[in-house]
């Protein structure tokens, strides 16, 4: 009897504890199996595929050579594909195009939802406000293929927006094959797609500002402008900062879906961004340079992380708020 109570007090060994845990949470472990399998096979295994960026990749051949692991390492201690990109005549043009469109996005697409949310906040009629929200979120839910085919239709020679441009004194032409028009169309349609949906997060930040602050400000004689500067903007500043950091952290990520759908031979020289370039190198006509485009993909991620870290550090010093 006595001996037994002593053994009970002792911590059971590890194997026993694991056994107990599995017995106790057996159902949970059963449920975890598909989740773990999914993540390991479909999400983590592709990360293993990243090593082809450092390889002279060849698909499996009949001799059983090649493949992800079997291909020989690239030159320059495995960094050959990166060196090839840096030396490529297209390197600067691709980087320039990407940063150009990104910066246009930061200057125009980023502030647009903020301004829209602030203006919407001044609409006091709730029913009208609701209608505005419902309709401005709409473009966000329409598929990229449909959006792009609408853009292409509207800007062709007989398109309705081309008509509008000619009424404003512009030339009548197919703007989809005009290099100078590509960027404004890309960024402008991006604002149209995202301004309503992007404002949701600011609207929710605005609604969490204490209403008593405004009442106090009115009693103190502050007008609308002063309320905006001293209460509203500080109230949503941390949200703005976090989203701005994330925006800067994706400086080299211009969406490939829209680029692939909108670009054509005539506009490729300004449209080609890093993500669409990696796509073209792998899947474009006559191309299948998988290792090279993987290396470019890694380059993009590394630069993004560097920019994210810099933006975060600056923001922490200046505004005291940051992402991490």
């Amino acid at each position: 009897m006595n001996e037994q109570s002593i053994t009970l007090k002792k911590k059971p060994n590890l194997g026993r504890r694991i056994g107990d845990e599995i017995k106790r949470n057996f159902v949970l472990y059963l449920m975890a199996i598909p989740v773990i399998v999914y993540f390991v096979v479909f999400v983590y295994l592709p990360m293993y595929g990243l090593i082809i960026a450092f390889k002279d990749y060849r698909p499996f051949n009949r001799m059983g050579q090649g493949g992800i692991w079997g291909s020989p390492w690239a030159d320059y201690y495995g960094f050959g594909n990166f060196v090839k990109f840096f030396q490529s005549p297209l390197f600067w043009s691709v980087i320039k195009n990407t940063i150009y469109i990104s910066l246009l996005g930061t200057c125009f697409s980023f502030p647009a939802p903020i301004i829209f949310a602030l203006m919407l906040n001044e609409i006091k009629n709730l029913k009208y406000k609701k209608i505005i929200q419902t309709i401005t979120y709409l473009p966000h839910f329409i598929s990229m293929v449909v959006i792009c085919s609408m853009i292409i239709r509207f800007f062709q020679t007989e398109g309705i927006l081309t008509k509008l441009i000619t009424l404003l004194g512009g030339e009548k032409q197919n703007y989809m094959i005009n290099e100078d028009a590509y960027r404004p169309i890309f960024v402008g349609s991006g604002i149209w797609q995202g301004v309503g949906w992007g404002s949701i997060i600011y609207i929710s930040a605005l609604s969490s500002i204490d209403q008593e602050l405004y009442e106090a400000a009115v009693i103190d004689g502050a007008g609308k402008w002063k309320q905006l500067v001293h209460i509203t903007i500080p109230g949503i500043l941390s949200t703005i900062v976090i989203l701005l950091i994330m925006n800067i952290g994706s400086i080299l990520s211009v969406g490939y879906e829209k680029t692939i759908l909108l670009q054509n031979d005539k506009t490729a020289s300004v449209a080609r961004v890093i993500s669409s370039y990696t796509y073209d190198l792998s899947f474009g006509e006559g191309n299948s340079d998988f290792a090279y485009s993987s290396a470019i993909g890694i380059f993009q991620s590394v630069v993004n992380i560097i920019f994210l870290t810099i933006a975060n550090t600056i923001s922490k010093k200046v505004t005291d708020s940051g992402l991490f």
Partner: peptide
């Protein structure tokens, strides 16, 4: 994540 191309290679190969 693996990114577009490595994912494609793993999924197909």
């Amino acid at each position: 994540g693996g990114g577009m191309i490595p994912t494609y290679i793993v999924y197909t190969q």
